[in-house]
Simulated assay, not measured.
Amino acid sequence: MNLIAWNCQGLGVALTARNLKEECFRKKPHLVFLMETKQKARYVRKLRRRCGFDEEWIVDPVGRSGGLALWWSNVLTVNILFSSVNIIHTSVMSAAFSTPTYITFIYGPTDDGDRMLCWQEVRRISNNIRTSWLCLGDFNDIMSQDEKCGGVPRAWKRIWNFKSFVTHCELEDLGYNGSWFTWCNNRDSPDTIYECIDRALGNLQLREQFPSLQVFNIDPARASDHHLLFIQCQYENYKENRPFRFEAAWASHA
């Protein structure tokens, strides 16, 4: 199973929509999670069809901010168990391949109080999970000072709160391949700030079910301040078998 998670910061931007479509056709994900769509359902639905997905769950933005979209192909059966402006919690099944039993998609609020309420809701969800669980998105939080470069250091209390939330839910960071940071404010030095706030988390059961799972951190041509996360639950590094070709220059050597 392949997934994409991206804080696209507005699907109405032509470059963003084009890059998203290209990544979908290149990576062929079975499921896509988008944050900060900033568009009503009608527009998001139209783009979903252009990207080749069959089903959807859309959370409209509040005013000009926010908005979530979950798209998936009909090879999956996705049940929405809980939905809000920051969380979409689902159970997933497929007759074609193995999937995590539960996937929770998160767009962490920027306000400290709202973010703590969001973590409380995910903690409540975790109390009922006994099988494989994947949790991914833009958490708007970091787990150590090493995950931020530039600007004012993150308050230790905020880091501790996030790490406590992850520990309570019995999750662990799944890491990723690519750039160390997933977000940049795109300002000129010395005001440039980098952070690792987009991530995928999984429980022990997920690790046991998908030991080869890989997460890739991809920068889609600066269409957004955030990088795109591409998750392959069953990753296989295929090597291309090249045909043998005789070089004419070899004939000049004994």
Rank of each mutant, 00 (worst) to 15 (best):
G202T: 00
Q232C: 06
I103F: 01
A221G: 14
Y238T: 05
E208G: 06
P29G: 04
S179C: 15
M143S: 14
V152M: 02
E36T: 07
T182L: 01
E240R: 15
L171K: 02
Y102H: 12
T131S: 12
K239E: 07
K163N: 11
Q234W: 06
E247I: 07
A223Q: 12
W119A: 01
R187S: 03
Y43P: 00
C8P: 05
S83A: 10
F216M: 00
R115P: 02
M93T: 14
G137S: 06
V152N: 09
S132V: 05
R18N: 15
P190M: 01
F244M: 03
M35P: 07
K148I: 12
G175E: 00
W133F: 04
H253S: 10
E195T: 13
S65D: 03
F139L: 04
K40T: 10
N74E: 15
L47H: 02
W180M: 13
T16S: 06
R18L: 11
T77I: 15
F162H: 00
L15Q: 11
N186W: 02
P153C: 03
N86D: 02
S65I: 09
Q39L: 13
I87S: 02
S84V: 13
P100N: 04
C184E: 15
V122F: 05
G113H: 05
V32T: 08
L81N: 09
I197S: 03
F162N: 00
L117S: 09
P220W: 03
T192C: 15
D225E: 08
H168S: 10
Y43H: 08
N2M: 04
Y43E: 12
N127Q: 12
G108M: 07
D191R: 11
V59K: 10
C149W: 11
P153F: 04
K148Y: 04
W180L: 08
H30K: 15
R154M: 05
S132P: 00
Y107F: 06
H253E: 10
H89Q: 14
R187F: 03
S144H: 10
C118A: 12
L81H: 09
R50L: 06
T77G: 12
F210C: 00
V92T: 07
E170F: 08
P211A: 08
L228I: 05
L11T: 06
G178F: 14
K163I: 07
F162G: 02
G66W: 05
E56S: 09
N128W: 04
P109K: 05
M143H: 09
S91Q: 11
H253L: 07
D114L: 15
E247A: 15
F165H: 03
R49A: 10
W156E: 08
T192Q: 07
H226V: 08
T192W: 06
T110L: 14
N241I: 14
C51F: 00
Q145E: 14
P61K: 01
N79Y: 13
L47M: 06
R242V: 11
D198L: 06
N79H: 13
L34M: 12
C8H: 04
T99W: 04
E240T: 13
R242L: 14
L229N: 06
P109M: 04
I125P: 00
T182D: 05
R123Y: 13
G63R: 08
F216N: 02
V166R: 01
F216Q: 03
K38N: 14
V122H: 01
Y235P: 00
T77H: 11
N79D: 10
F25N: 09
E170L: 09
